[in-house]
Design a protein around this nucleic acid. Structure first.
Lengths: 226, 226
DNA sequence: ACTCAAGTGGACGATCCCGTCCGTTTGGAA
DNA sequence: TTCCAAACGGACGGGATCGTCCACTTGAGT
């Protein structure tokens, strides 16, 4: 308080600034959906009806814009995880979580690309929320295993594996979602303890905890390395 | 000078031309592996030790270069299919086919991207060989089902689904291959008839036969549309 | 050895995108 | 209403890639 309590907005931001920021996010989602997250920045600005400078002021880098555009989806994922943990039936929770996330990736066109792009290095920005999410995930997996529904050799990192695979699928085939649903169904069945047959190869070193994620090769989708 | 035949090639092509073409393919594979199939054409030319013009003469478009670079891999896939059909145990053949193709995608860095890029429209150029490949695939699937090992509701298009998903995975995580192996193991288990539990959602309209493949959206990896 | 068309190299104009700079507009407090 | 800092818009220089054009080199037939 002390000196300047010049209140412009709830967060001290001018009204038009906040409005433009919102417009930019909407435009970004639309443009990313149509042209992928590598679409020219200027296109997003034009779509939002603002100048490029305004875009860059609100989102200094493309990554910031991508994050901004899909923050809501990320939060929905986190919420889905919370709900999954709250489910009295651990397997049910596990299953619904996977289905929800995959559905989100199916519906929001640009999201999968953002998702995989954010993956290898995502630890940076989201460190704290990620920390919690991963702890929750491990809890969910453990519970589902203890309930006897989830196969014992399922490893938390498998979740990353199947989500990345699913991202690849929906990116390659943005169809009605039949392919995605099929893949998810197959995978869920193979995760059941009662269908488990034979041992699996060792899980990824992909930690799903903190940083030691094998750096993404030059192959990875460019454009989101905070 | 191991070049024994100093005569103009069987196809009337000059010796240096053929040599350069070969160099370009080698360079392209290397560059695509390091930087993805969107790497600058000039980089490939430099790597091959030739001028850009030479590159463009041999491969007028990036697509042509990509195809040229991975022709051998495509042929290996076809050969794997033939061998799979020859296997006395249909399930064994089916399983080995999937494992072989996925291993190829794992090892040859640029290949997965080329694979998914070539997918939606691939019918154009490779029409005839594709035709045969798809017939063979359906035969393989049918046999494996009749042997009782492959679940009855497995649909040939599921092969495309899992291969695309696998491409996405190895593209996102070009690691040592542990993730890929895990995914394949999970999927193969869920394809077994004896682990099948519960119905699957309907298969993709993705035909895997001829053309009616739902056109790839703006999302798809650019750069290989004959 | 001679010849010439096939083959080659690299410079170049065109296009696209990035991100900053700077003069102008505007929200909102006084 | 007045005023000014925050916010805005668009032009602009820089850099990268594309694909072509044209003068030069070279393989191979005679």
């Amino acid at each position: 308080m002390t000196e300047s309590s010049r209140i412009k907005g709830p967060d001290g931001v001018r009204a038009d600034a906040r409005r433009n920021r919102e417009r930019l996010i909407v435009a970004a989602r639309a443009v990313f959906a149509e042209r992928g997250i590598d679409a020219p920045m200027a296109t997003v600005a034009r779509r939002a009806g603002v100048g490029v400078a305004t875009l860059y002021r609100h989102f200094p880098t493309r990554d910031a814009l991508v994050r901004g555009a899909f923050t809501r989806q990320m939060e929905t994922c986190a919420q889905a995880l919370t709900e999954a943990l709250a489910d009295p039936d651990p397997w049910q929770g596990f299953q619904r979580l996977i289905e929800t996330v995959c559905e989100l990736q199916r519906e929001e066109r640009g999201f999968p690309a953002a998702f995989v792009a954010a993956f290898p290095d995502g630890a940076a920005e989201h460190a704290q929320s990620r920390e919690r999410a991963e702890r929750d995930l491990m809890t969910l997996v453990r519970r589902a295993q203890e309930s006897g529904a989830l196969r014992a050799d399922f490893h938390p990192s498998d979740l990353a594996v199947i989500l990345l695979a699913h991202c690849g699928l929906v990116t390659a085939l943005p169809d009605d979602g039949a392919a995605s649903r099929r893949l998810v169904a197959y995978l869920l069945q193979s995760f059941r303890a009662d269908t488990a047959s034979g041992p699996l190869p060792p899980p990824t070193s992909l930690s799903l905890r903190g940083l030691p994620i094998t750096a993404v090769g030059p192959q990875g989708r460019r454009s989101s390395g905070a």
